[in-house]
């Protein structure tokens, strides 16, 4: 006999949950948005970016990996937690070259959208590292600009677990860690996007881009032009 459903609270709101659900899964179903960058529907949870950090029972945990538990008291949208999240996002900006004004992902970019949601309205307080990595445009259909990579590992998980190709992976350690491909360049991998491969589609920023479609979506019709990131989930609650 399976364990019975239960409830817990996020910021005082009662959230129904099923056994095995993470805090984020239960929150999403209940229409409560917990910010996240590395988590993506259909990919295994990783808890890497820590933007989904919440206080659960007084401990800081990643909501995407932490299982919900009966009567758990979770803090999500507090000033303190959102400041920590904003610091994390600011550090992502300072690590890469996130030049929104000229980036084709602008308006569809989750990092940019998260910065807006977290009220990051100006330059970060951190120094910019300004990486200078060559763009890999050798593949006929996709290009890789790792200056914009936030090391979310979505492409790696999608390539390994969903596409079963292992095209993308990390090289280097610590601050030098970055996404690379299993060949001399993209052209020498099987990063084909003509099948059902999703690794090129899960990138939250403008790192992996489809060739020839940049800026084809008019301003005003892009994903985040009409609402904050997470408003789709929060909309469920209003319904």
């Amino acid at each position: 006999m399976s364990d019975p459903d239960f409830t817990f609270t996020i910021d005082g709101t009662t959230i129904p949950a099923k056994p095995g659900q993470t805090i984020m899964e239960a929150a999403d179903a209940a229409g409560v948005y917990i910010p996240r960058l590395c988590d993506h529907e259909g990919l295994r949870h990783q808890g890497g970016c820590r933007v989904c950090t919440v206080k659960a029972g007084g401990r800081s945990v990643a909501a995407c990996t932490q299982p919900a538990a009966p009567k758990l008291v979770v803090e999500n949208e507090t000033d303190h937690i959102n400041k920590l999240r904003r610091d994390l996002v600011e550090m992502l900006f300072h690590e890469g070259n996130h030049l929104c004004p000229i980036c084709e992902a602008s308006g569809n970019c989750e990092l940019q959208a998260m910065a807006y949601r977290l009220d990051m309205t100006g330059p970060t307080k951190f120094p910019y590292l300004e990486p200078c990595r060559a763009v890999d445009a050798s593949h006929p259909d996709i290009a890789l600009d790792t200056n914009r990579c936030i090391s979310c590992s979505r492409c790696i998980r999608a390539s390994q677990d969903v596409d079963h190709k292992g095209v993308f992976g990390y090289v280097g350690r610590g601050i030098h860690r970055r996404v690379a491909v299993n060949g001399s360049d993209l052209a020498h991998t099987d990063a084909d996007i003509t099948d059902h491969a999703i690794s090129a589609d899960v990138c939250p920023v403008g790192c992996i881009i489809r060739k020839g479609v940049g800026f084809a979506t008019p301003i005003g019709e892009r994903e985040f032009d009409h609402g904050l990131i997470g408003s789709d989930i929060e909309g469920k609650r209003r319904e």
Partner: peptide
């Protein structure tokens, strides 16, 4: 140089 062709009209207008 080194940028992708469809980015050019958006970059150079800056």
């Amino acid at each position: 140089r080194g940028r992708l062709l469809w980015e050019v009209p958006v970059i150079v207008q800056r």
